[in-house]
């Protein structure tokens, strides 16, 4: 081969005659290498780079942003400052909507088609990220876990104000095991369960209703929280027992009369959010995690878009 005369070999020889050429690197590669060195040097001057005496060379590039105090700042380029500028830019786009929402009473938000669309779209994302894990994607809730937000039945109230309160501070409705009668017997609990089921016209044993009613309005103290008419009290989040909507007593899931009685009995005997109860449901407080504007959007979303209402 002609190369033999022009290019040196590496000098080692294997198996008697195997040699390796020591070809120079291709020219394009060498120039590419020098170009990347030059690029690196330019880069050092533009962006933060080398450490110097406890700090670093900050580079010439800058970012300008406005912080939450309204102070305008120009600092050397860095990803955190760039995030600030980025948030500013999008906040400016959403500001007209958020300003309007902050300034508009709930009732008027509902009447304004533009705002309504904004609530429906931004509310959906917020709901999916924060609420759907418990209340499920469409807000339909989950029996034994978190209430349905799309019906007109509210534990704590379905007004804008009540919903906003539920989100801001969270909720934890507590029902003590055995109501207010720690000595309640199993038989008494059965009677109470049948009475409770009779209130909403679910299958029950009619012969036990009178005894259950007496306990409900007497020794067991149920009336003190659920009211004499058993329609519940939204101030303490006690459930309305006269409708067929059950959150804890999974009566719709239980098919037979016996199963329904058992489900309600379980709630009566172990309570809800009582330390030893198997029925636990806490609505977390969102005030530290979500902004006031986000909570207002969610309130309107639950009330108007999910179609809760009062």
């Amino acid at each position: 081969m002609s190369q033999e005369n022009e290019v040196e070999t590496t000098g080692h020889v294997w198996d008697g005659d195997l040699q390796e050429y020591n070809n120079p690197l291709p020219r394009w590669w060498i120039w590419g290498f020098y170009a990347s060195v030059a690029f690196a040097i330019v880069y050092w001057f533009i962006y933060p780079s080398w450490p110097v005496a406890g700090h670093f060379l900050t580079g010439f590039d800058t970012v300008t942003y406005v912080n939450n105090k309204g102070e305008k700042k120009t600092v050397h380029w860095n990803s955190r400052a760039e995030l600030m500028a980025n948030m500013n830019q999008y906040a400016a786009k959403q500001k007209p909507y958020f300003d309007k929402i902050a300034a508009t009473p709930f009732k008027k938000i509902k009447a304004d088609p533009g705002l309504n669309d904004f609530i429906a779209s931004s509310g959906r994302t917020l709901f999916a990220d924060n609420c759907a894990a418990c209340h499920q994607a469409g807000g339909q809730g989950k029996i034994g876990f978190a209430p349905n937000l799309t019906d007109d039945d509210w534990l704590h109230g379905g007004t804008y104000k009540a919903i906003q309160q539920s989100i801001v501070n969270g909720r934890e409705g507590v029902m003590p095991a055995k109501g207010l009668d720690p000595n309640m017997t199993d038989k008494q609990a059965t009677a109470l369960a049948n009475y409770v089921l009779s209130l909403s016209g679910e299958p029950h044993d009619a012969t036990l209703v009178a005894q259950g009613s007496a306990l409900f309005h007497g020794a067991a103290g149920c009336f003190s929280c659920h009211g004499a008419n058993a329609k519940g009290n939204q101030l303490i989040g006690s459930a309305n027992l006269t409708d067929k909507i059950w959150l804890w007593a999974s009566s719709p899931g239980a098919q037979t009369k016996a199963a329904k009685v058992e489900a309600v009995k379980q709630v009566i005997l172990t309570g809800i959010n009582d330390p030893n109860s198997i029925h636990k449901g806490v609505m977390p407080a969102w005030k530290g995690r979500l902004s006031g504007e986000q909570i207002k959007v969610l309130t309107a979303y639950v009330h108007d878009t999910l179609g809760g209402g009062e």
């Binding site: 924060n130 759907a132 894990a133 418990c134 989950k142 876990f145 636990k280 449901g281 977390p284």
Partner: peptide, 21 residues
Amino acid sequence: GKKYSNEWQVQHLIAPRSMVP
């Protein structure tokens, strides 16, 4: 942390699809 309740975390770890289909 604190985004969900303890009950949610427990239920979700035992059976994630029961909470998030």
